[in-house]
Structures are given as C-alpha cells and as structure tokens.
Design a protein around this nucleic acid. Structure first.
Lengths: 349, 349
DNA sequence: TTGTAAGCGTTATCAA
DNA sequence: TTGATAACGCTTACAA
C-alpha cells in the first residue's frame, strides 16, 4: 500500500474500498457519483497524498494532453527576447490558459542533435514564422491540427497581416514629403548571409511569401507611385533583429559623407528603427529634421519614449489569440487576415 | 493494417514481421539489433509513415517526458513581456534545448478555473519568483525535482542573487554625491494594493525573503551609512513593472513643486527607472543634472539608448541556465548565489 | 449509483 | 540477435 512510489488511482481505490472507476469519476465527472462519496474520496485523496490522475497515463488513455505546442522559427533565445514574438506568445498563452491548456515551446531552427520526440505529445501545433527547412514540419504528426502564422503551409489554416498593404501605407505617408535620398533597411531578405549593403552580387530570397519580401513590395510600389526609381534606392540587409546585429549596419549608413547619407530610412522593424534612432542621437543627427525614420510592428518600446516612433502597428497579441482559438477549435479554421494601423509618431511626422 | 488512425509501433511490427521489441529497439537502442535490420526498419517506418514512438505512451512507460515546466509567479502575459523574466526563460530554454528537453510554461497567479493537471507531465519544475499562495506548490507532485528561483522554498535548491548587497552597492555609488531629496521607488512591497506614495497607513510585506524587501534593506543601509534618516526618505510603490502602471506614479513624483521634487530616484527595476527617464525627458527635467536615476536589472533597453541607465546588472540568462542545469542534474542541487555588477551609465554618473 | 475489465502505445524483462 | 509478454496508470463502455 503506502510504499515509496507515488500513490496511484488504484492504490487509492483499494484503500477506500471503491472501484477505480469511481475514483476516476470523482475527479473527472462529478455527476457520475453521489456528492457524499465524491466528497469523501477527494478528502481522503488529499489526506493520503494523492494529487489526482497522472497526466501521462491520462493523456495516453484519452489521446489528448491539453498541451499546445508553439514552434518558433527562430531559436527560443532569440524569440523570447524579441518584442513581437513575445507579444504573440502572450496572446497565445492568454487564450490557452483561459481554456485550461498549457504552452509547450519548441525551437524551429538549430534544435538539439536528437529531434525532441516529446513534441508530439501536443494536441496541436502553432507554427510561427517561416520554417527554414520543412523537415521539421514533415515530422509533425499528420493527424494533428496545425496553424501557420506569418507564412503559408499549403492547405493549412493561417493567420497573417497584409504586410504589403501595411508597408505601402507607411511608405506612402513618409513620401508625402519627398525625400532626397531614401533608403530601405530590411530583415533577412538575401539568400546569402549579408549584414550590410545589398549589392548586385546578392540575390533576394525567391520565396515571395516571406514577410520581408512582402514588405519590400509595399515600399517599392509607394516609391514608384511617387516617380522614384526603386532601382536607385539603396537596400541594406540585417541578419538578425537585435541591436547588436543592427548597429554596425546602421553605423555604416549614418557615417557616410553627409551628401550621401539618407534622409529617410524605411525600416522593416521597430527594432531596426529604434537602433537607427539611438545611433542618430549619438551622432547628433536631428530626427526628423535631418533624418526621418519609420518602423514596423508598433512595439511598446517605440511608443514609450521621446521622440515616438512613426510606425505601423500590427496586433501581435491578437495574432496569438486568433491562432490559439483556431487550434482550440473556438473559431473556424480559416485564412485570417488581421488589420494594421498607422502610428504617427515624431520620427516621421 | 493501414486504416484511418495513426500507425503504431505494433502495426509496423506486424507489417514487417518482427516483434514490437525490435522496433522499439531500432528507435531507442541501436546496439540491441543488427545494423541491417535497424536500417530496414527505419526505412520502412518512414515509407509507411510511422514517425517514431508515441510520446504519450513512451512517457507513461518510462516515467519521463523530457519536459521541464517553468512556473512563473506572474501571469504568462506579463512574464513574456518582461525583459528580466524573458531573459531568464531564454537561459532555461538554451540549456534544456541543448539536452533534448522542452519547456512547458505554467502560469502561477490567476490560472484558469481548473488547475492544469497536465502540468504534472513534467519531469521537473522550476519555480520563478515568489508564489503568492503556496497552494499551487502543494499540488506539485512531491516526488519531482523542484528548483526555486528568486525566493526560498524550505529544503529546496535555489538560485538567487544577493539583492541586498547589490542594492547597497548601487545606492552607495549614488550617494557618493549626497542628494538633497532622495526617494525610493519599489515594486510591490506593500501588503495593501498601493500604486503611489507609501504612507503610514500601509504596511510593508512581512516576508523578508522577497526581493523587494531585500533591495530596500540595501538602499536603507547605504543611506544610513551616509547619515540620512531613512524614515524621512519617501517611499513610492508600484504594483506592476510596466510602463502603463509606473507612469502615473512617476508623473505624480515629478509633478511636485520643484522644492519638493526628488533629485535622486533609487528605483528597484530598470523598467521603473526607464519610465522615470522618459517622463523626465518629456518634462524637460535634465538628467542627471537636476535628477539622478538608478535602476536595477541591467536590461538591454536601458543600455542601448542615450543617456544610458546607471544600474546593477544581474545575470538573468545565467540564472536560467543554472536553474535548468540543476533540474537536469548537471550541476549539484544546491543554494546558488550569482554575482551582480555595477553598470555606470549616464543617469547617475 | 457503483463495479468490472479492456485497452491506450510503449518499454523492459526475460527466455529463445 | 530477436521475440513473447507483462506492466505503466488511467478512462470508459457496459454490466450489475
């Protein structure tokens, strides 16, 4: 009876002289037994140190674990420290939590030697961001629900924003005052690794469904519309959306002779824009007088500062919520497109 | 054989005319069967769409899931958007990932109606931050490993920083130039809810093991040492470490008549300090000339801006790494104390 | 209202 | 080197 190992439902049943089914019901279906008996069982369980049905056994038996996995395109380390990904996750977490589910975090890129087979314990998968190799996706249990966020998996429900429209919108705003020397700073858009100026030697990622590619599209159409020759607009590439990786590139841009230095930076993320802002401040370059800057995302850090960032807000939390609701089957599995909103700050009034 | 439902190990065994044990060994113990057979099994498995042993069944059988849970004191929504907690999590994730484990996130406070029984699927628990009620802790499977971070559970391995020493250190630095009107802004230190000035009507949290209490201790001893009567130093309380919650309190502090307005703010977090900095800038109060500000934590946002925050850096990522290593049994379960480092920025030179 | 018993898909211990 | 077979702890028809 009460030996070393953890007490099981069976032990408890024996102890109380009732059947295992009754104990199970006491925990899972209150309506299947008399309140009195249930009361007694719960009390005795607590007294004897039985803390409820074992999750492993239960999930094997029922086939469901109440665990939803989020697969992050980037490493967990990066994602957890990125404002946009964090907001997305908190949206997911909020909904899962409200419905008694929990969140398992899986790295996409560069996971350990052995693939985490433990992953397939999840009832469903939310895949956030483009997977570099579909290998991981292949390994996902086919039967399980899948929702893709910010990219497309064929025949799979997705949640998206209209990146092209959003960047068109902000570029159009920025171009209401025509810049002399506009420049675009994008995020991982070249096939080759390139942290700096994009030259003729680089090729852009072919996949038109990446968000970077879509945003470039939007910038370019707004520029063309104003009669700017987009081929003449310098393109700079950033390999990772962090201050450390951005800043050398931004420094290179800002340290050009003044007659070549851009007077408008269209950045593909707020992180890039904020880095540009900080470096401009350090150099005494006045924003927006000498340099106008636009961001993308609408993260808090860009709004709770002076000068406030001009940017497009995307509802990352909302994206997370919708993705989670789809996975839980609380909204129909579909192709959702979320709204964006222009945020007129001080960096490009 | 190949019906609707997912293929199982047994199905595969039947299909290949080998025993289930052999299939299992092919996946788990290469040395237990001839390479040729193993090769064949793996190939056929892939062809027939068997993606390896089911995690639920495996975890029931072996007793281990390769999942480690982190229980966060605050809601997931808050924690994911807090720089310190995020860094901690990324430290945990990094180590877990390197050893083929995955991360399950559990909310401490305010979890859903039904306790997530799915939690006990985890092999071990890292508890981050003070648990408001130990109820959740009681429910944790007694047998499982537990590591406490930033607070104490009796008889449990912990990882900590020396909050008192660290805040003593930074306060001492700040006091090298004696302020006329110092003030302290702390984080959730009153028993009653209080977002504003702490008065005689408020009582401080009794528990001396909270990090806020420990930091206050450090501030006070540095002040006393300089002959300042700590009873005269105003104490302000913040209920949540976010810009939104901080800013009204900071506004109240800064909008006092100039002869009452503090000239030194000792803040218990960088978030508070950064909010103070932003609001000071908005009001044209010069930092550090008219107002010196110190933070606590050393988050990136405080260092990648101008002026840089003067603060104490705690190695949150390192804390996460150590906690994860302890859980995995890669370092001895013990009481670890991590170092802190004074970061001399521009807000209190 | 309560009890009986058959799995859920594995792994581990044997024996062959 | 490979194969039977008994658990792992639980849920759920179905029977009483």
């Amino acid at each position: 009876m009460t030996d070393q190992r953890r007490m099981t439902l069976k032990d408890l049943a024996q102890e109380l002289n009732v059947s295992t089914a009754t104990i199970s019901n006491a925990f899972n279906r209150p309506d299947q037994l008399s309140p009195a008996l249930r009361e007694r069982i719960l009390k005795e369980a607590k007294r004897l140190g039985y803390s409820g049905p074992d999750a492993k056994a239960r999930s094997l038996r029922t086939g469901r674990s109440r665990i939803i996995a989020v697969i992050l395109a980037e490493s967990l380390t990066y994602s957890l420290n990125d404002a946009v990904a964090s907001e997305f996750l908190s949206g997911v977490a909020e909904v899962l939590d409200a419905h008694g589910h929990t969140l398992l975090l899986l790295p996409g890129r560069g996971h350990a030697s052995q693939p985490p087979g433990s992953a397939n314990i999840a009832d469903g998968f939310i895949v956030y961001g483009l997977m570099p190799n579909n290998k991981l996706l292949d390994e996902l249990p086919a039967q399980r629900t899948l929702v893709a966020v910010d990219f497309d998996i064929e025949g799979c429900p997705t949640v998206h924003i209209d990146d092209t429209a959003a960047s068109y919108k902000i570029a159009q705003h920025a171009l209401s005052e025509l810049p002399k020397r506009p420049a675009i700073i994008n995020l991982r858009l070249t096939k080759e690794v390139c942290n700096g100026r994009v030259t003729a030697e680089h090729t852009l990622l072919p996949n038109t469904s990446t968000i970077s590619r879509a945003r470039l599209e939007g910038f370019h159409s707004a520029l063309s519309e104003q009669g700017v020759d987009v081929a003449q607009v310098p393109l700079w590439n950033i390999e990772e959306n962090t201050f450390e990786v951005c800043s050398p590139v931004i420094a290179e841009i800002l340290d050009q002779p003044i007659e070549k230095r851009p007077d408008l930076l269209l950045c593909m993320s707020d992180r890039i824009a904020l880095t540009a802002l900080t470096l401009a401040e350090q150099r005494g370059i006045r924003v927006p007088e000498e340099l106008r800057i636009t961001g993308f995302d609408g993260i808090a850090e860009g709004q709770y500062r002076a000068p406030r960032l001009t940017t497009v807000r995307q509802d990352s939390v909302g994206k997370g919520r919708v993705a989670a609701q789809m996975i839980l089957g609380r909204v129909p599995l579909a192709q959702q497109l979320l709204q964006t909103e222009l945020l007129l700050g001080d960096t490009c009034p």
